[in-house]
Write a protein that binds this DNA or RNA. Structure first.
Lengths: 109, 109
DNA sequence: AACTCATATAGACATTTGTCAATGTGATTT
DNA sequence: AAATCACATTGACAAATGTCTATATGAGTT
């Protein structure tokens, strides 16, 4: 992932309480949709919608196993998200504000 | 911050490309709104809207200095967000799925 | 006091989001 | 092949989001 826009879907996926709880549940290990559904008072279609957002963001891996979908966390993506947060919140030589003559950051302090 | 819901506004704040860029700019140090505005092709009111979301999420600190608003990053919040991501993505004894007899995680593996 | 500069707020609007009930699809079972 | 189970998709809808123009507020300047 290279650009700011690449991380927008990841943080969007993280910005819903239900999805945060689903991620937490998956930290225990693999689960199928029906297992997850039992823990929430939402409809099956709503869960399917959330799982789509989670898998499309790369935070969750979903593989079909017969009739079931087996979901697991994709730790690489969460690690990338953490690295990205660290990156944008710490000073660096190629900071966006130092590009194309940013008046603020290139002036003597 | 204690609950899942506490982090939703933080990730919501992070799930917009413009706001990610603003955070990146602030990693260089303090900036006022007009400095930030120069780097974007958005209206002044739109920037004001984004700064409100960033400050209310706790990611950015804004202090008035006469007519100016001086914005800085609030690293504690980003660190808390990172800790939270790590927390929910790694197995733990008090995992949500281990509460109130979760059928999946309490069964023998 | 009037003016200007920096920022906030209000109102309008199109788009996106989260939710559901209903239905479709594909796999397993009978 | 018919029925059932697990999940996805569709259509509808209210609420939230991101954007703008216009206007308000509040601070400094003339």
């Amino acid at each position: 992932m290279n650009s700011y826009a690449d991380y927008v879907p990841v943080f969007k996926a993280l910005s819903d309480e239900t999805r945060l709880k689903i991620i937490d549940m998956l930290s225990c290990g693999e689960m199928c949709a029906c297992d997850i559904l039992e823990k929430f008072s939402i409809s099956q279609s709503t869960l399917s919608y959330h799982m789509k957002i989670l898998t499309e963001s790369g935070l969750v891996n979903g593989v079909r196993d017969g009739a079931w979908m087996r979901y697991t966390l994709r730790i690489e993506t969460t690690e990338e998200a953490i690295n990205f947060i660290n990156y944008i919140t710490h000073d660096k030589d190629d900071c966006i504000c130092k590009q194309s003559s940013c008046k603020v950051c290139t002036e003597e302090k």
